[in-house]
Structures are given as C-alpha cells and as structure tokens.
Amino acid sequence: MKKERIQGMIALLVLTALTAVAKESSVYDEIWGTAAYENDEAAVLQKLAFVGRLQGDAYSFGGDSKHNEDLIWRRLRLGLKTQLFQDWLIHIEGDFDLNEIENWDAFNNRLTDSYIGWAPSAKVKMKVGKQSAGFTLDGATSSKKLIAPERSIVAGNLWFGTEYFTGSAVYGEVGNGSYKAGAYSSSGESGFGHFESGYFTLLSGGIKVGANSTLRLDYVFNDTDYDSRRGYGTSKLNHIAALVYKTQLNEKLGLWADIAGGIGNSDEGMSDLLGVDIMPFYNFTENLQLVLQYAGVTSLEGDVDVNMARYASRNVNRDKVETAHNLLLGFNWYLYGHKLKWQNAVEYNYGKNRAGSGDDYNGYGLTSALRISW
C-alpha cells in the first residue's frame, strides 16, 4: 500500500500543478524555461538543460472473458544535456520505474541516451555512445512525440523495442534529403553494451516529396549471437526494411504510414514478418487532434511469431499469434505541444492463431495517457 500511496501523491502533485498553470503559452514558456540555461554567445558552455519525461497510463482491456486494467507509470526519464564549444553535445539520461519505487535495483532501470555528439553542420552530425536506434515509423519517433499512446504493433514486431544501444552513427541533411548510418552492439544490457552478443547496422535515407511530404527507407542488417550469455536486445530477424511516408495534406489533415518486412533467422525458428501501419489524423485546432490508426502484422509462414498490442497481449498471457490486427481511434489534447498533452484512445485488437487451435483473440481496450516532457 505504501507504493500506491506514493504514486497517488506524485500523481496528485502533477495534476495540481497542471491545474494551476494558466493556458497562456507565455506561462508555459516561463515554467519550462526554468529547466535550461542557454547563452549562444558563450565561448564554452552554450546550453545546459535538465531533460526528461514523465508518462502515465490508465488502461482497461478486455476480451474473450479475460480482462485487465491498471493505473501505471509508463516512463520516468531524467538526465542532463549540454552543448559545448558550439559543435559538441553531451547527453546523459536514465530510465526509472516509478512502479518499483521501493526497490532501488528495480527502480533504477537502465541508461537511455548517454552519448557524445558532434555537429559541425546540418550536413554532418555524429553520435558515439548509447543512443536510440530508430527505424520504422513509430520506432524512429520519440515516445515524447507519438500521436497515439503507444507504438504500433508494426514497431512492436519489426523494430527493436530495447531502443537504446551502444554504438556510433553519422547523420544529416543534404538538400532535400536526409541520411543516417549507424553500427551498434546487439547487447540488451541496462548499462553500456558490449559486442559479445553481436552487432547490427542501420542505414536510412529520406527525401522530401513536394512541400509537405517525406519518404524514407530504413534497412537493418542484424548479426546477433543469440547464444551469448550476456543477453541481447534485438529481435530474431536478420534483415529488416521499412518504407515510411509522412504528409500534411493541409492545415487540418495529415497522414503517417509505413510498410515493413523482416526476414527471420531460420536457425532460431523465426519466420518472416510483414506489417503495415496507416495513421490519418485531423487537427481541429492547434490543441485538439483526432487520430485513426490501423496496424497489422502477419507471419508469412503462418507461424506463431507475432506480438499483439502492448496491453491486449496481457489478456493472452503475452502469447504470440499468427496474425495481429489493431484498430485505434484516438483523441489528443495538446496543452503545450508535445511537452504537455493528454492522449486518449479506444482500440480493437484481433489475434489469429493457427486454424483449428481455438485460440483467436477478440477484444477492446481504452487507454488514457498523460505525457510530460522537458
């Protein structure tokens, strides 16, 4: 009960603070501005910022006589980011589990962004250290800027949900295009990774299509040692490719979508996967947004290798299925852009298993999510 009381107190403090804040953007600017020091004219230190995010979910999912619901802290991340000598960046950040506040080892979850960056120009930027390895539509989108409460099942199956890996990357923008090339340890350790579990490489190239659209192709080659005693954080897919499209049709209507496929490691019994994610959205105002999302993933060999949506999977004891479908209707209220928003979604999940198994899943769910970042 002590943990629940502490969580309730923190939630009450957060909600009280949000209620006390006026709606004028200047007030939000003043509050968020206290987390950073900036001086572009300084010779050594141009920026020092306290960074992080606090995210909480209330969810209720049910189907096929099974039901689960809870109020949980989804993420707490705290860290520092500093800019030095104009071109250098140091970012150190950790992930903490507020649901395990009484146990330090469980509370102190892992390092996330912990790297040194160099950005002499927009065309060439580099990072060395632990960093996000983003690919697919949602996998390359920070959890701070998702327009649905959770990443889609396409990312859940074809991206590496560990997200943060030790390695190096070079990226930038040239003309109407963008690129990224990186090599990373496959290690899933909570601290800095090692290369005893193998490695993977990421190549990504994008281009602007018209004034308000972008098209990007991501490719990953994954050479993980699945027998390593040190553990791994990748999937059992050897090759992954994703085609990502984003467009803003007008001030109100936009569309994000991707199609992704992966070739499974046959030695590990993993089948090939194919997924598609289509997400149109409509902005009623700068603050109110409606989102519709369909995502589906299937095993091309008909094997039971597909993960369902995060909370729906808890109704099937996290068992995998042959094909998963997810249909979501969401409503977002942006109080201060992505830095302070309230996201709500109702969704339908269907999981198909082998013919005759009798283990198909049908269920509905509701998620209400608070997202704060600074």
Rank of each mutant, 00 (worst) to 15 (best):
K2Q: 13
G8T: 06
T19V: 14
S26A: 10
E30Q: 14
I31W: 07
T34P: 09
K47N: 08
G52T: 12
G63R: 12
K66Q: 14
H67M: 13
L71T: 10
R77L: 14
Q86I: 07
L89A: 11
I90S: 01
S114Y: 09
W118V: 02
A119V: 05
K125E: 08
M126G: 09
K127Q: 15
K127M: 14
A133H: 02
L137Q: 03
G139E: 01
E150K: 06
A155T: 05
E163C: 08
G167D: 02
S168F: 13
F195Y: 01
S197C: 01
T201N: 15
T201L: 13
T201W: 05
L202T: 02
L203D: 01
I207W: 11
V209N: 15
L217C: 03
D218R: 06
Y226S: 09
Y226N: 02
R229Y: 15
R230M: 13
Y232T: 02
Q248R: 10
D258N: 13
D277E: 04
I278N: 03
L288E: 12
Q289F: 01
L290I: 12
V291C: 10
L292R: 11
G302I: 06
D303L: 15
D305S: 06
N307Y: 03
A309N: 14
A312L: 11
K320V: 08
Y334Q: 05
L335M: 14
L340Y: 13
E347W: 09
K352G: 06
N353V: 01
A355E: 13
Y364T: 14
R371C: 10
